[in-house]
Design a protein around this nucleic acid. Structure first.
Length: 268
DNA sequence: AATGGGACCTGCGCGC
DNA sequence: TGCGCGCAGGTCCCAT
């Protein structure tokens, strides 16, 4: 599942390869992936456009074109961007004037592409909380102070803080030795500080290793990211905790699989 | 306000 | 063997 580190990795790949490319054609193999506007307008609006800039906001990729418009791409669970493309089975392909193409794959069809005049006005993006890298510990502590909700679902709430999903929430909480079910406001000032530090460090390290290839996340060139080897708890139910050897536990929290070490992350 | 559940999707692994 | 079921989870939406 692409979260901030995975999307950032793809963003860097796009930046390295696609700036200045001119679109000649859009091949849509599954209409559902284009959410906005109509398929016809999507194609027409992109014909002849040149890629000017690549951005990431939370888990959303933004491709800005020289005509002022932008394509936003949310990979959700199983979206993949591959360049250079050409393999069978893509849901949509951007074809460029140099003969190469950027392919969008998406097994479960959760992902979505939009062509917009101003990506800043996209509702989801407007509603995003701050990027973890754009915050300081004091700000994070202040934000937690007013929240009685459970810490893990809160970290995953994109309106609260953006870019973190199920995997990195679990990893950050393990590293901070915080039980995923405790209320945010109940954390001591010190613990809040530790959580902020570990959350940022986890994301940074994951970016360094080009993301976690669980499910079907791959880098732009189709190769996997290497951070899975560093996971402490995520998808490790029943396996020994890397710190204390206690079996990692899986519970359901906020309707999501939640992995933690019952000893290292003891509930108070 | 916070929480829980369902919907969207498809492939895979499990138990019977 | 083959089949049905649960699960995977980001986001939206609705009910409580």
């Amino acid at each position: 599942m692409p979260e901030l580190p995975e999307v950032e990795t793809i963003k860097r790949g796009l930046e390295a390869h696609l700036l200045g490319k001119k679109i000649t054609q859009i091949c849509v193999h599954h209409p559902k992936v284009v959410r906005q506007p109509s398929l016809k307008k999507f194609k027409e609006g992109l014909a002849g456009a040149t890629i000017k800039n690549i951005l990431r906001k939370a888990k959303v990729l933004i491709i800005e074109f020289s005509n002022g418009r932008a394509v936003t791409i949310h990979l959700k669970m199983t979206g993949q961007l591959i360049y250079p493309g050409g393999r069978e089975g893509s849901r949509l392909s951007f074809c460029f004037s140099d003969g190469t193409c950027l392919d969008y794959f998406d097994q479960r069809l959760f992902g979505e592409l939009r062509l917009v005049d101003d990506w800043r006005q996209v509702a989801f993006i407007k509603g995003l909380g701050p990027e973890p890298f754009a915050m300081n510990p004091a700000q994070f502590k202040e934000m937690l102070a007013r929240k009685k909700t459970k810490i893990k679902p809160l970290l995953m709430d994109q309106r609260f803080i953006c870019g973190i999903g199920n995997l990195y929430a679990a990893e950050a909480l393990f590293r901070a030795r915080i039980n995923p079910g405790v209320s945010a406001a109940s954390l001591s000032d010190k613990k809040k500080g530790v959580l902020f530090k570990e959350m940022v460090a986890t994301l940074r390290e994951a970016i360094l290793h080009q993301g976690s290839s669980v499910d079907n996340y791959v880098r732009l060139d189709g190769t996997p990211g290497g951070y899975v080897d560093f996971h402490q708890v995520y998808a490790r139910a029943g396996k020994p905790c890397r710190v204390c050897k206690t079996k990692v536990k899986r519970i359901s929290l906020g309707g999501r699989g939640t992995y933690f070490c019952p000893r290292c992350q003891k509930a108070p």
